[in-house]
Computed example of a mutant assay.
Amino acid sequence: MMFSFILSPVAYGALRGLRNLTFTLALPFSVSSMAYAEPVTVFALGDSLTAGYGLPEGEGLVPQLNAWLDGQGADVTVLNGGVSGDTSAGGLSRLAWSLTPEVDALIVTLGGNDLLRGLQPTVTRANIEAILTEAQTRQLPVLLIGMAAPGNFGPEYKQAFDRLYPELARQYGAQLVDSYFGLIDPDATDPGQISHYMQADGIHPNAAGVKRAVESLGPQILTLVEQLD
């Protein structure tokens, strides 16, 4: 699957605390008005599913998600931190310099390329756990989007891989989406079941598939940023 200023945690925490203090008296978030104390920035850390591989500009996940949020009147911007071909290790390696001071929350969509490379679930778990630990240190709420292993790796591999996402979400208090492809169809467990929403490679969603994913993911983003109140 072809699934981009470093600040110390102490300095980051001080800056974030100042921002929170500055806006203590601002109006709270409400679903009806979509009013926020300040513009919210969400960083989407992921692979080609986040990057928008194979799609025209404006039809990938992040542009469609930003358009959906704008249509809801939400002052929320999602930054595209997707790198095609990235593994969980690649996402971890660029996390620290990706989380610039304006980032308020994090989306993590990694693991698909780990599966394609047959990496052990323990490796993927360790990398994603390190990402969640860093986010926790920076007091960033996280939306973790899982992946489901295919059955051809064997039942033990699948069980170990599939359970790492819910277990880590519980451990670190992250908001969880069980499966990326479940955003397109909640009954889907692999891309083959939603082929009409996929590109010719059978791995990446087409624009219509992304649209369905966004319709499911958008409300999850609003729930995520409510944690910033």
Rank of each mutant, 00 (worst) to 15 (best):
L106E: 06
L164T: 14
V78C: 10
L99I: 15
D201I: 08
V42Q: 04
L176Q: 10
T22E: 14
V108A: 02
T41F: 13
L115R: 04
A135K: 05
V10E: 15
E57A: 15
L183I: 02
T77L: 11
A169Y: 11
L25W: 12
P28S: 06
G82K: 00
V123P: 00
A208R: 15
A89R: 11
L164K: 01
L95C: 02
M1Y: 05
V142D: 06
A67V: 05
L61H: 04
V123G: 00
A74W: 03
E129L: 11
D178I: 08
I128H: 05
L27T: 13
G218K: 02
A135S: 14
S30V: 03
S30N: 11
P9Q: 01
D47F: 03
G54L: 15
M1W: 01
V76H: 08
L79E: 08
G111D: 05
V42G: 04
V225L: 05
G52I: 08
D47Y: 05
L25S: 13
V83E: 05
A14C: 02
E57V: 09
F153C: 06
G218E: 03
N66Q: 08
S48E: 12
F29N: 01
V40H: 06
L65F: 10
L18Y: 08
S98Y: 05
S32P: 01
S4M: 01
A14I: 13
R94I: 09
P9D: 06
S30W: 00
V142M: 05
E102S: 09
G173H: 12
I203Q: 07
V31P: 01
T87Y: 00
A74V: 04
T189H: 15
A200S: 13
A169M: 11
T109L: 14
V142R: 03
P155D: 11
L140F: 05
L176Y: 10
A51Q: 14
L110V: 07
Q175S: 15
L222N: 09
K158T: 12
G90H: 07
L15C: 00
G58F: 11
Q64G: 02
T189R: 14
Q136H: 12
Y157C: 12
G111H: 05
G118S: 10
G13S: 14
G112I: 15
G202W: 09
W97V: 04
L18M: 11
L183N: 03
V210C: 04
K211T: 10
G182Q: 08
G218S: 03
T41V: 15
L110P: 01
V142Q: 07
Q171N: 07
L55Q: 07
A135W: 09
R138W: 06
A126N: 12
Q171I: 04
N66C: 08
L217F: 13
S48K: 07
M2Q: 12
Q139A: 14
Y157T: 12
F181P: 00
T124Y: 04
A67L: 12
V177N: 00
G218F: 07
D86C: 02
A51Y: 09
L176G: 10
V31T: 09
K211I: 00
L119H: 14
Q193H: 07
I131W: 03
R16D: 13
G173N: 10
R212W: 03
D162G: 06
